[in-house]
Design a protein around this nucleic acid. Structure first.
Lengths: 218, 218
DNA sequence: TAGATTGTTAATCGATTAACAATC
DNA sequence: TAGATTGTTAATCGATTAACAATC
């Protein structure tokens, strides 16, 4: 029934809260106030309380928040307690490192299978994830629940792969290709991880600082 | 002299403009108006003109923008024409895939060296990038210009590595560890690429949609 | 010249911050 | 109870959008 649309800014802060709460929990901290959390994260207490209040009342007046229960609430808001199934398309370098090192399970996501064109990879298994032929992709999509497709193919085939995924019922794409994904049906959820965008932002802030320093030294 | 601070939102849009302009240029498009660009990117023409006007006047009344020259202007704003030198710390899966597949040069950054603790890797070279011992890191930092450190070490050693880098003059860190980097001197520029934050945001939007659909089907 | 589109100023909208009553 | 801190409403601030004169 609560149908208010939550702003993207709020959503992007939730994982940060979660990360810090997890850290605090591991350090044995059991209770925290919005002021303390704000201090740690560089946010105002108001903003933190405002953020939480989008989803309910998780604290207690005069006391603050229980670290553990706040963490659980946020996990749930983010959908971590759902049975989310993922596949990975493109077992290149980055795909491989995601299979090997990224703990999908820690975030409530199960990586069920990977797909590639390379015969040397097909039939192998990394960390329990079987690598299947790209020819099996469409049949697989038709026979299994797939919530998220992790897109780690070379940029040349990104468009084609996206088309296949969307045409066969995938609703969400986690995009690691440096290509702007266009969903012709505008109904997919696309989350981009453009490394280059991130590096360019860093580059901007660095050169802006250099300019400022150069001016000051005149 | 132009000392106005540009909002982060604007900075984050610049790489998107750049990507699209590059694409348009490759397609042979030589001229574009703010309305056309807005149409393509899902932004208002006003916003686009407002964004550009933070940095100067790049267009021409009645005509629009030259794709090539606009692209050049943005590249320059982002610092791509500077001699930015980087090193990579931690040649694991993700570090390796960055060396092998990410074209630092395309973004105006030169990756000069990588560092690792693994004796099997030390002395090898990937794509022209030599892998050096972690013991050589500090001497290297003292003898060479290093603008950006790409941090791809395991999370357990992230803090320690950060400390070394900051203590030896590195001003910018591109952080791939899923650890909140804390700069004790609060002067470093830190750009985080938290994969998990991105996945969790995706997870939120997915479960929010599922909830909405479930309600509608009642 | 007429039409198109910029650059910029003003108006609106939304997000953050401040304030405070409620209450643990 | 007194002190602390939430949840929420109101005030402020900043970002986006609209409007339009300037001009190519």
């Amino acid at each position: 029934m609560k149908h208010a649309v939550i702003s993207n800014n709020v959503i992007r802060r939730l994982p940060r809260y979660l990360r810090k709460l997890d850290e605090l929990e591991k350090q044995g901290v059991s209770r925290i106030s919005s002021s303390q959390l704000g201090e740690i994260l560089g946010l105002t207490p108001s903003q933190i309380r405002q953020d939480f209040s989008c989803f309910g009342s998780f604290g207690q007046q005069g006391y603050g928040y229980s670290v553990t229960s706040l963490k659980e609430q946020i996990s749930q808001i983010l959908g971590m307690d759902r049975d989310t199934r993922a596949i990975l398309v493109g077992v290149g370098n980055i795909g491989r490192s995601l299979i090997d090192k990224f703990n999908f399970n820690d975030w409530g996501v199960t990586l069920d299978a990977a797909f590639d064109v390379n015969p040397a990879l097909i039939g192998t298994t990394f960390r329990g994830v079987p690598v299947k032929s790209d020819k099996e992709l469409i049949p697989y999509l038709n026979e299994n629940k797939v919530d998220i497709a992790v897109l780690t193919v070379p940029r040349e085939v990104a468009k084609e792969a996206t088309q296949q995924l969307l045409d066969n019922g995938v609703e969400a794409i986690w995009n690691f290709t440096n290509v702007e994904i266009v969903d012709p049906y505008s109904k997919a959820i696309v989350e981009n991880l453009h490394f280059s965008d991130s590096l360019l932002a860093l580059s901007y802030y660095l050169s802006e600082r250099r300019d400022r320093e150069a001016e000051e030294n005149q």
